[in-house]
Deep mutational scan, measured.
Amino acid sequence: NTCEECGKPIGCDCKDLSYKDRHWHEACFHCSQCRNSLVDKPFAAKEDQLLCTDCYSNEY
């Protein structure tokens, strides 16, 4: 699979995080606004962007 954020392949030695058929490296899986990691945290998706709950609450 190819990472949505950096565009590089996700190798066998990396954790592949996925959501709705989109894939990310663990280090690339972060909020589109504040850039905080979303690994093991709740998040929301809006208009193809992933947002942490704080940024989502502030926007919507």
Score class of each variant (00 low, 15 high):
Asn1His: 05
Asn1Gly: 02
Asn1Gln: 01
Asn1Asp: 08
Thr2Asn: 00
Thr2Arg: 09
Thr2Gly: 03
Cys3Ile: 00
Cys3His: 00
Cys3Met: 01
Cys3Trp: 00
Glu4Leu: 05
Glu4Pro: 03
Glu4Met: 12
Glu4Thr: 11
Glu4Cys: 13
Glu4Gln: 11
Glu4Arg: 07
Glu4His: 12
Glu4Val: 13
Glu5Ile: 03
Glu5Val: 04
Glu5Cys: 10
Glu5Phe: 15
Cys6Lys: 03
Cys6Ile: 02
Cys6Val: 00
Cys6Phe: 00
Cys6Leu: 00
Cys6Asn: 00
Gly7Glu: 03
Gly7Ile: 02
Gly7Met: 10
Gly7Arg: 06
Gly7Lys: 03
Lys8Ser: 04
Lys8Pro: 00
Lys8Arg: 08
Lys8Ile: 12
Lys8Asp: 05
Pro9Gly: 04
Pro9Phe: 01
Pro9Val: 01
Pro9Trp: 01
Ile10Tyr: 01
Ile10Asn: 01
Ile10Ala: 02
Ile10Gln: 01
Ile10Val: 07
Gly11Thr: 04
Gly11Glu: 08
Gly11Cys: 03
Cys12Gly: 14
Cys12Phe: 11
Cys12Asp: 14
Cys12Met: 14
Cys12His: 15
Cys12Pro: 12
Cys12Ala: 15
Asp13His: 04
Asp13Asn: 06
Asp13Thr: 06
Asp13Tyr: 07
Asp13Val: 05
Asp13Met: 06
Cys14Thr: 14
Cys14Phe: 14
Cys14Arg: 08
Cys14Lys: 14
Cys14His: 08
Cys14Asn: 13
Lys15Val: 04
Lys15Asn: 10
Lys15Met: 08
Lys15Tyr: 02
Lys15Leu: 07
Asp16Ile: 09
Asp16His: 02
Asp16Pro: 12
Asp16Tyr: 04
Asp16Leu: 09
Leu17Val: 12
Leu17Ser: 10
Ser18Trp: 02
Ser18Tyr: 02
Ser18Ile: 06
Ser18Pro: 07
Ser18His: 08
Ser18Val: 09
Tyr19Arg: 05
Tyr19Asp: 07
Tyr19Pro: 01
Lys20Met: 05
Lys20Asp: 12
Lys20His: 07
Lys20Leu: 06
Lys20Gly: 10
Asp21Asn: 06
Asp21Val: 00
Asp21Lys: 04
Asp21Gln: 12
Asp21Gly: 10
Asp21Arg: 03
Arg22Thr: 06
Arg22Gly: 10
Arg22Ser: 10
Arg22Phe: 08
Arg22Glu: 03
Arg22Asn: 06
Arg22Lys: 09
His23Tyr: 08
His23Ile: 06
His23Ser: 05
His23Leu: 02
His23Thr: 04
Trp24Cys: 03
Trp24Ile: 03
Trp24Asp: 04
Glu26Trp: 03
Glu26His: 05
Glu26Tyr: 03
Glu26Asn: 10
Ala27Gly: 12
Ala27Glu: 11
Ala27Phe: 13
Ala27Val: 09
Ala27Ile: 06
Cys28Asn: 04
Cys28Met: 00
Cys28Gly: 01
Cys28His: 04
Cys28Pro: 04
Cys28Ser: 01
Phe29Tyr: 09
Phe29Ala: 15
Phe29Gly: 06
His30Gly: 13
His30Tyr: 08
His30Pro: 03
His30Thr: 08
His30Gln: 03
His30Glu: 09
Cys31Ser: 02
Cys31Thr: 01
Cys31Asp: 01
Cys31Asn: 00
Ser32Gly: 11
Ser32Gln: 10
Ser32Ile: 09
Ser32Asp: 09
Ser32Leu: 07
Ser32Thr: 13
Gln33Tyr: 04
Gln33Glu: 13
Gln33Asp: 14
Cys34Val: 01
Cys34Lys: 01
Cys34Ala: 00
Cys34Ile: 04
Cys34Pro: 00
Cys34Gln: 00
Cys34Trp: 00
Arg35Thr: 07
Arg35Glu: 14
Arg35Lys: 13
Asn36Ser: 13
Asn36Ile: 11
Ser37Ile: 05
Ser37Trp: 05
Ser37Arg: 08
Leu38Gln: 01
Leu38Lys: 03
Leu38Met: 10
Val39Glu: 14
Val39Met: 08
Val39Ala: 11
Val39Pro: 05
Val39His: 12
Asp40Tyr: 04
Asp40Asn: 09
Asp40Ile: 04
Asp40Gln: 13
Asp40Ser: 07
Asp40Arg: 07
Asp40Cys: 07
Lys41Met: 10
Lys41His: 12
Lys41Pro: 05
Lys41Leu: 10
Lys41Trp: 03
Lys41Gln: 13
Lys41Asn: 09
Lys41Thr: 12
Pro42Asp: 15
Pro42His: 15
Pro42Met: 05
Pro42Val: 07
Phe43Pro: 14
Phe43Trp: 15
Phe43His: 14
Phe43Arg: 14
Phe43Thr: 14
Phe43Tyr: 15
Phe43Lys: 10
Ala44Ser: 14
Ala44Met: 13
Ala45Glu: 15
Ala45Thr: 15
Ala45Asp: 09
Lys46Ala: 10
Glu47Met: 07
Glu47Ser: 09
Glu47Leu: 10
Asp48Asn: 12
Asp48Gln: 10
Asp48Ser: 13
Asp48Leu: 09
Asp48His: 14
Asp48Gly: 10
Gln49Gly: 09
Gln49Cys: 08
Gln49Met: 12
Gln49His: 12
Gln49Asp: 09
Gln49Ile: 10
Gln49Tyr: 09
Leu50His: 02
Leu50Lys: 06
Leu50Glu: 03
Leu50Thr: 08
Leu50Pro: 12
Leu50Ser: 03
Leu50Tyr: 01
Leu51Trp: 06
Leu51Gln: 09
Leu51Met: 14
Leu51Arg: 11
Leu51Val: 14
Leu51Cys: 13
Leu51Phe: 15
Cys52Ser: 04
Cys52Phe: 00
Cys52Thr: 04
Cys52Asp: 02
Cys52Tyr: 00
Cys52Pro: 05
Cys52Lys: 08
Cys52Arg: 05
Cys52Leu: 02
Thr53Asn: 14
Asp54Arg: 11
Asp54Ile: 14
Asp54Ala: 08
Cys55Pro: 04
Cys55Lys: 06
Cys55Thr: 04
Cys55Gln: 03
Cys55Asp: 05
Cys55Tyr: 02
Tyr56Glu: 15
Tyr56Trp: 08
Tyr56Gln: 15
Tyr56Ala: 13
Tyr56Ser: 15
Tyr56Val: 12
Ser57Ile: 02
Ser57Met: 02
Asn58Glu: 14
Asn58Tyr: 09
Asn58Gly: 14
Asn58Cys: 07
Glu59Arg: 15
Glu59Asp: 12
Glu59Leu: 06
Glu59His: 11
Tyr60Gln: 15
Tyr60Arg: 12
Tyr60Phe: 12
Tyr60Lys: 15
Tyr60Gly: 15
Tyr60Pro: 15
